[in-house]
Simulated scan of single mutants.
Amino acid sequence: MLIKVKKPCEISENLITPQENYENRRKILKAIGILGIGSVFGIDMLEGLDAKSVKINKNTYPYQTDSNYFQSPLTPYEKATTYNNFYEFGMQKEDPYHRANVLQTNPWSVVIDGEVHSPIKISLEDILKKMQLQERIYHFRCVEAWSMNIPWLGFELGDLLKLVKPKGNAKFVLFETAVQNTMPAIKNPSLGGYIKFPYKEGLRLDEANHKLTILAVGMYGKTLPNQNGAPLRLIVPWKYGFKNIKSIIRITLVEKIPVSTWTSLDSSEYGFYANVNPNVAHPRWSQASERFIGDGFGFNKIPTEMFNGYGEEVGRLYAGMDLRKNY
């Protein structure tokens, strides 16, 4: 499995994905020489092509592909959208797919406040006017020891935080999800394992500002499905999946380390940092390997990489830290 490819000339376009319009888009762009120079724009640019050769998908945004971040093979779209955790809609992997249609995503606004000079409440529409969207294919690793390769569409979180001008005493970032009365686990807490919502997660400010950290608004060339955290979710590829909080409505910069949902539930199993580390086992299972969810009916067991394979980029953030203690 490839973990990272830096040179566009080395990238293989023989990706495994059942999404016909996504795959056809990439093949056509490659054929006309655009993919090779890493400047792929949104699917709307294909309007002039023969409609019989590709199905045009309007449900997306203009974007560019960042070929520096590439994983192969892709997890099929059908699996990435039907096997995930979103506890506001239930505890089983298929629950979000079947129940998240009740999530109201339009209109959507995000409050960014706390230790900042210019707090704002900004609509997603206005955010997208200010941000440069990129497609990045990241390896996604769940703390439950399964993984996927997913093409996310989003922008660097650090670019958004610049809008509010963080104060010098801002050291951490706290994220908070939407709570809507139509969510099954809000109406019936037993469906969500009696987890207290809103779901909260946090990062150090330097982690949040790292170039790999993005806020995703789409995947596989489409807007995010509700079950995958629409319309705005966090992606921190070197951390376990539970850190990648979904359906964000508030981002607060704070001075002290925030208490996240899973850390408050069981800090012995779910630490604040949650960096992918094959050398530190979960109390109930090993983290040395993972079940990759790809094409076919089974799982491919592969070794887990330190920092999920992104150690070259993020290892310096933890220089001198005891990564067993600060798990």
Results as ranks from 00 to 15, higher is better:
I3S: 07
K6H: 14
K6P: 06
Y22R: 06
R25S: 10
G36H: 01
M45G: 07
E47S: 06
K55P: 06
T60K: 04
Y63D: 13
D66W: 04
S67P: 06
T75I: 07
Y77D: 10
E78T: 06
T81E: 07
Y83S: 14
Y83N: 13
Q92S: 15
E94K: 12
H98A: 08
T105R: 06
H117A: 15
P119Q: 02
K121S: 12
E125T: 09
M131F: 13
E135P: 09
I137E: 13
F140E: 09
R141E: 00
I150Q: 03
P151V: 03
L157A: 08
V164A: 02
K171M: 15
E176D: 08
V179C: 14
T182Y: 07
P184K: 01
A185L: 11
A208Y: 02
I214L: 15
L224R: 01
L224S: 10
P225I: 03
N226G: 03
Q227M: 07
L234R: 01
G241T: 03
S247K: 05
I257D: 08
V259R: 04
S264F: 05
S267N: 13
S268K: 09
G271D: 06
P278D: 03
P283S: 08
A288S: 09
G294P: 05
G309H: 02
E313S: 04
V314C: 09
V314Q: 11
G315P: 08
L317N: 00
A319P: 05
G320E: 10
L323C: 01
